[in-house]
Design a protein around this nucleic acid. Structure first.
Lengths: 206, 206
DNA sequence: TGTTTTTCTGAACACTGTTCATTTATTTTG
DNA sequence: CAAAATAAATGAACAGTGTTCAGAAAAACA
């Protein structure tokens, strides 16, 4: 092994070390507490070092952002074997919802926070959404299959997918940002579960 | 006039002065730029003075938060004269959407940001949502009227209102936080407009 | 070994919200 | 009107934040 490749590997390992530390602090104590200094302290390096591996905090959180999509896509994977497209669509929705409820911080980072989206990629304009695109494209594919078996007749898949994604996101976002408090006597999980059921039965009639 | 009442009036005027400055900076340059120091500079007082009129930054932004709801409620007001409840519901949705698109920062503050919600009211637990509650209660009322003329049969108004609000919010939230970029070749306004039409036609069948 | 290149440090910068002793202004009292 | 008491405003200071960069330390090369 040449010395150059080892250095390259070490560089990648260091990036991962920083990322792992950032992730653990982020999941333990949330976004606010995940500062450059706390990450540096955790891995026992100086704050300045982190900037040798990440351009800025946005780039760092963009990496976590992508990790979130990886986890989500993984949970979507098994659904490919659901034969009926409409059932697959509904199952996808449930997985999406479940992900948001059990990975609140990740969901927030992926779909609500501005931070990781500000990150300018030099490579491509939309490389930042590589993972998000995959999920969205899969949704569109499922919708087209639904159309083939008679659902959503005459509707544009682009607008339809946006509407469906939005509706789920709306519930998740209100949940993540504490707006379910508007329903004093109801549990957020209850609102979401029932709201979802209503939405599904509405979709089936469309 | 006693001196005490004049002092009280002056105190209220000062609160308004701070609030107006905060609002103008907030609308001009966004949340990030609206710091205690920039507000103080604008009204030509020292930073410390602001804390004599507002407990903390959260209380200040909670006041702006309420102002947002006042503006929105004002735009909802004329819709009370729409006779058909279903048309009124749809009109409400359009006003809501329009508000979000033309008052992005206010919408963000009202429904997405965490800041003004953290604000602990000493008076009542949910005094913070006084304005939001009004809007939500009006939505529920309209939905009940819709049920009286045959729509949404057998559905619980609580869950139904949450689902409808969520769906609209989802589109607004994705718009506010730049997630419409996922649809590279589509204008956000276009996505929302069409997504909304699809949703309305779905609602009518429910 | 000495020289060059790479890696890392930590102080410094400009910012944030917030506090509080001190100063300034106003009102009440003698 | 002058003095004492009260109220209001100040601005330096504190503990944070992301980020930069001259200089020190370590590693690689000659």
């Amino acid at each position: 092994m040449t010395i150059a490749t080892r250095k390259q590997r070490e560089k990648e390992e260091m990036r991962q070390l920083i990322l792992e530390a950032a992730k653990s602090i982020f999941l333990e104590k949330g976004y606010e507490a995940t500062s450059i200094r706390t990450i540096a302290e955790r891995i026992e390096y100086s704050p300045g070092t982190i900037y040798l591996y990440f351009k800025d905090k946005d780039e760092l959180f963009h990496a976590l952002h992508e990790e979130g999509f990886r986890i989500m896509l993984e949970k979507m994977q098994p659904l490919q074997h659901v034969p009926d497209p409409m059932n697959r669509l509904i199952a996808m929705g449930r997985v999406y919802m479940e992900f948001a409820l059990t990975n609140k911080d990740f969901y927030d980072l992926m779909f609500i926070m501005e931070a990781p989206m500000d990150h300018e990629c030099q490579e491509e304009q939309h490389e930042k959404w590589k993972m998000g695109d995959s999920t969205l494209n899969y949704l569109k594919t499922v919708l087209r299959e639904c159309q083939e078996v008679g659902y959503f007749k005459g509707l544009d898949v682009e607008y339809l997918s946006f509407m469906i994604w939005s509706s789920l996101h709306g519930m998740c976002a209100l949940y993540c940002r504490g707006r379910c408090q508007a329903y004093e006597n109801y549990q957020p999980e209850d609102l979401i579960k029932n709201g979802m059921e209503y939405y599904i039965s509405m979709l089936k009639k469309a």
